[in-house]
Design a protein around this nucleic acid. Structure first.
Length: 423
RNA sequence: GUGGGCGUGGUGUAGUGGUUAACACGACCGGCUGUGACCCGGUAGAUCGAGGGUUCGAUCCCCUCCGCCCACCCCA
């Protein structure tokens, strides 16, 4: 084999269509009920759009972006996520002049240069929603509730919400300072990876998987203790709402996870993740949070916003994707006894298709082979055209999944065909 | 970037240091000169991931590379 799909990419084949379409439909149907509207942004943007928002020092920007110079010498990046693009469009297209908050959703391909493994690809699909222009905790709740609704509608069990608050910018800076001081005391006990983190991304020390670090992190200061009054009440109000949701729907489970920090720089206040226990290390199927500073960072007016992104591949992995089947079942395969009847079969085929009957003309082979073909493509029926039929202006129809006799009738009796096929 | 497992027809698997690499499914053709799916028979399809080494001889042993999968990292 000479040509192969690039590492971390894959093909969606006909038998996968059903599940992919279903997931997409459930996502869209659910958020539309909440008044969200479709937005589609380009797959590539000025690299700065991501550097400024996702964060210069994040892994995503530092080593995972597909960045290149285009023929005009401009630095372009394939989008590693879609929030930045949506915000860019929000500013550029003047959406901030509309009635706020504005509710948007997207569905599309993202790109990250990573080593692939289960639930992780270089080209992958994300569905996400953004509610821009309202800083009320009620919106945080709405976003989480929608996430939960989608997960439920998809039939995914055993998911759990992890939630935390990072506070506002000043809270966060203060917290990082305190956290750094705390870990400095144990610097020599930290493994090398984490000594580096201490310098570059101290927040990440909290969810380190190194034994020593976990031990030390147990007594580390918590973000919640460094929140401003406002951020704190925002958080406690949200938690109350979640407790109410839990009372209404006992399947909804959540924990406050003080170690949840998330890797994108633009988050403030609420951050959350839905995880499942069955999907292993890539257990996060949906994650998001509030990103109030982002739009200003991109040069827009100060505008608060919340949103989440969902990994479609992980979702599909989760709902046993045993559903492979051909939803596009063929209704009729036309079999002709001699090639000279081909003209006839073509005009019949077009007439059938005009009547929304899915039709294929069998390949130019023996009758036996044509029948096998009809069977292999899982057609509902076969229509024969031969000398006798031509003479009488009739067709012979045989249902393939039953042992019923075949029926011969007038070749313009579409209603009869539909009736026999139960269309 | 680091570590572990694995690379044999289209797919899933056997197998052995020695002349035609096996089996099942799938595909194709025929048994049925106008009828599939069942049954029976046949045909095609693999330089055993690539390169090098050891050997009289390598698909098998050794090395390198490449690819896939998994884990770390990070994230959806």
């Amino acid at each position: 084999m000479i040509y192969k799909a690039q590492r971390g990419t894959f093909d969606i084949l006909p038998e996968n269509e059903t599940i992919w379409e279903r997931v997409r439909k459930i996502c869209l149907d659910t958020v539309k009920l909440y008044g969200y509207n479709y937005i589609e942004t380009p797959i590539f943007e000025d690299s700065e759009v991501f550097k400024r928002t996702v964060g210069q020092n994040t892994d995503i920007v530092e080593k995972e972006m597909y960045t290149f110079l285009d023929k005009g010498g401009q630095s372009i990046s394939l989008r590693p996520e879609n929030t930045a693009g949506v915000c860019r469009a929000f500013i550029e297209r003047g959406l901030h002049n509309r009635t706020l908050p504005i509710r948007l959703f997207y569905y599309g391909t993202m790109f990250r240069y990573e080593r692939p493994q289960s639930g992780r690809f270089r080209q992958f699909h994300q569905f996400g929603i953004e509610c821009i222009g309202d800083n009320d905790y009620e919106i945080d709740y709405e976003i989480i509730e929608i996430g939960w609704k989608i997960i439920t509608n998809l039939g995914i069990k055993n998911s759990k919400l992890n939630i935390n608050s990072l506070g506002d910018n000043n809270d966060r800076l203060e917290y990082i300072k305190v956290l750094k001081q705390y870990f400095e005391n144990y610097k020599n006990d930290l493994p090398k990876v984490d000594q580096l983190r201490l310098e570059n991304a101290p927040l990440r020390l909290l969810d380190s998987k190194e034994k020593n670090t976990i031990e030390i992190a147990k007594n580390a200061p918590k973000t919640l203790d460094y929140l401003s009054e406002e951020a704190k009440s925002h958080h406690t109000n949200l938690i109350q709402k979640l407790e109410m949701l839990n009372k209404i729907d006992e399947n909804f489970k959540f924990v406050e996870n003080h170690k949840l920090v998330r890797g994108l720089d633009y988050y403030n206040r609420t951050v959350f993740e839905f995880t499942t226990d069955s999907s292993g290390p890539q257990g996060v199927i949906l994650g998001g949070g509030r990103y109030d500073p982002l739009i200003e960072i991109l040069g827009g007016p100060v505008t608060p916003a919340v949103g989440f992104a969902m990994g479609i591949e992980r979702i599909i992995n989760e709902i046993n994707n045993k559903e492979d089947d051909f939803s596009n079942q063929i209704d009729v395969v036309i079999v002709i006894t001699e090639n000279i009847f081909r003209e006839e079969s073509q005009s019949l085929a077009n007439n059938l298709r005009k009547n929304k009957i899915k039709t294929i003309i069998a390949p130019n082979k023996s009758v036996k082979a044509q029948m096998r073909y009809a069977n292999n493509v899982n057609s509902k029926s076969v229509i024969f055209i031969g000398e006798n039929e031509l003479k009488n202006n009739s067709i012979t129809l045989k249902l393939l999944n039953s042992s019923e006799d075949q029926k011969t009738f007038s070749n313009d009796n579409i209603e009869k065909i539909k009736q026999l096929l139960r269309i």
